[in-house]
Design a protein around this nucleic acid. Structure first.
Lengths: 267, 267
DNA sequence: AAGTGGTCTAGACCACAAA
DNA sequence: TTGTGGTCTAGACCACTTG
C-alpha cells in the first residue's frame, strides 16, 4: 500500500486512516488485535512517522482503536454498554395516538435505574462546593436561568457515580440556598425521592428532563477518565416541589459509548 | 506567557491550550472574536508552530474554537440549539410515584417534534439501498438482532433531514422485506403513523426508544457536515405492529451540540 | 499579492511498560 | 534493556480566502 502524494487531493494521513478503518470494518483486524506499530506503518506507507500519527489520532478520536503508551495500539473492543431502562406502557389506541402512560422511572433516583445493570454501582461524593461569588462560569449561569434564581443564591454540588472502580457518571446539582438541607441528602445517597419526602417533608416532581451530547471539557474528561473532547451523553433537568417552585437543576454527564437511556414500551 | 519546558510535566501544547481555554472561559476572548494566528501564538509562547497547532486542534475538538482555512481562527459561537420537545403530564401523587402520562409525542414522525423549532425542516431522501448480501457491517447486524430477522431479509433506507440548507438529522431504517410498502411511505414523508395506518392499514406502536451518544464515523461526518469524530446524539428504537411483530428498526443521528430531546412535565 | 491554516519531512529526545 | 507511543523542533511547500 503506497498512497500517492496528496497533491491537492485526499491527504495521505486520511488515506492511511481510511485504509486502516477498512481493515477494521472488514474484519481483517478484529477487536483486541494489535495494530502495526507507528514505525511499521511509517515503513509500510513510506511516510514520516508524524503523518502516521495523524492517521492514528483520527482513528482514536473515532473510537476505533485504543492506544496504550509504551505497549502498543489495539483495535478497540466494543464498549460494554450500560442500559438505563424505563418501562412505559404501550400507547392506547382508542384515542388518537396521544396518550401514553409511563410506569416506574423517570425519577431522579438512579437506584431505580438499575434494572438490567451487571453490577450495582457504588456512589461516592467527589466534591462539595458552595457557590457564593458571581464568577461561576457558563454552567452556573445556565443553572441560575433554569431555576430563575440569581447565581449568588445557589449552592453547587458535584457527585461522581463509580462502577467497577471506574468513574461512570458525573452529576452536578444547583439548588437555592433555602434548600441547603437537600444537599446533605444528595451527598449521602444522591436524590432518592422517597427519602427526601420522609426526611425533609419535601415532595418533588419533574419539571423537565432532556438528553443531549457534547464533547468533554478538561474537567469532565479528568473526572470521567476519558480524553479531552471525548463524547459525553448528557441528561439535565429541573425538579420542583408541589408548589411548582424549582428545587434543583441537575446535569448528568456520562461516557457516550457506554451508557444508553432506554424507554421500553410494555405490551 | 512563556511556559517552561514540559520535562515530564504537563506538555507545552496543553499548557497553551488551557491558557487559551481560560481566556475564553473568563471572557477575555468572546464568541466571534478572532484568535491570534498560529504564527502569533508561536511567537508569543516561543514554541514551534506545530506545537501551537496541537493546542489549537485540542480546543477545536472541544468545540471552543472554529477554524476557517485561509481566514483565521475564531472563538466558537454557542450553537443554536434545536429542542425537540415532548409534553408529559405530571406524576400523579396518589399512587406511589409510579404513574405518569405522556401526551402527544414519542411518535416517530418528526413532524410532531417541531414544537419550538425556528423553521420547519425540509426532509429529503438521500439514499435508498436494498440489502441482500450478508456483508452489511455492524449496524446491519445490530438491526437484524433488534428485529430478530436475518440481515439478508432486511431492506435498508437512509434519509437526511435538512434544516436551513444544512444536514440536521441522518436517519437509517431497516425493515423486513414484507414491509417493502413502508419504504415508499418513508421515502415520501418519513414515518407518519397516521398516513401509514390510513394508506397501508398498518397500525404501529413503539417497542422501545433509546438515547445514546457516539463519535461520528466517516460516513456520518460527511453526511452531517461535521468533522470526523465529532459528537453525535443518537436515538434509536424498534416500532412494531399491533400483533407485536417488529416493523422496523430506526437509528437517528444528529449533531450533539445542536439538538436536545426534552421531556416536559405539565402542571 | 499577502496572509491564513493544512500537510509533510527528517531528526531528536523523552516517558512509559514489559521482558 | 528494549520497544512502544508522546512531545518538540526547524523548515518547507501547499491550498484557500481576502484584498
Amino acid at each position: 500500500m503506497r498512497p500517492a502524494q496528496s497533491r491537492g487531493g485526499t491527504p495521505i494521513y486520511r488515506q492511511i486512516a481510511t485504509e486502516l478503518w477498512n481493515r477494521i470494518q472488514t474484519g481483517q483486524l478484529r477487536p483486541g488485535d494489535r495494530m502495526p506499530t507507528e514505525n511499521d506503518l511509517s515503513a509500510e506507507f513510506a511516510v514520516n512517522r508524524l503523518t502516521v500519527r495523524q492517521a492514528v489520532a483520527e482513528l482514536q478520536q473515532l473510537g476505533a482503536i485504543e492506544v496504550r503508551r509504551g505497549t502498543g495500539t489495539f483495535v478497540a473492543e466494543p464498549p460494554d454498554l450500560v442500559e438505563i431502562v424505563a418501562s412505559v406502557s404501550r400507547r392506547t389506541r382508542e384515542t388518537d395516538a396521544t396518550q401514553t402512560a409511563l410506569g416506574e422511572h423517570l425519577h431522579d433516583d438512579a437506584d431505580d435505574e438499575s434494572a438490567p445493570r451487571s453490577t450495582a454501582p457504588v456512589r461516592r461524593v467527589a466534591e462539595r462546593i458552595e457557590f457564593s461569588g458571581a464568577a461561576s462560569g457558563a454552567s452556573g449561569d445556565a443553572a441560575a436561568r433554569h431555576l430563575s434564581t440569581p447565581v449568588e443564591e445557589l449552592l453547587h454540588l458535584d457527585t461522581v457515580m463509580v462502577q467497577q472502580d471506574r468513574a461512570w457518571i458525573v452529576n452536578s446539582y444547583w439548588l437555592p440556598r433555602r434548600y441547603a438541607g437537600v444537599v446533605d441528602a444528595l451527598a449521602e445517597h444522591d436524590l432518592v425521592v422517597a427519602s427526601l419526602r420522609d426526611g425533609l417533608g419535601l415532595d418533588l416532581a419533574y419539571r423537565w428532563r432532556a438528553f443531549s451530547a457534547a464533547a468533554a471539557d478538561y474537567d469532565e474528561a479528568r473526572l470521567l477518565g476519558i480524553p479531552t473532547g471525548g463524547v459525553l451523553l448528557i441528561r439535565d433537568g429541573v425538579t420542583d416541589d408541589t408548589a411548582g417552585d424549582p428545587v434543583f437543576y441537575v446535569r448528568r454527564r456520562m461516557r457516550g459509548e457506554s451508557a444508553k437511556f432506554v424507554l421500553r414500551y410494555g405490551s
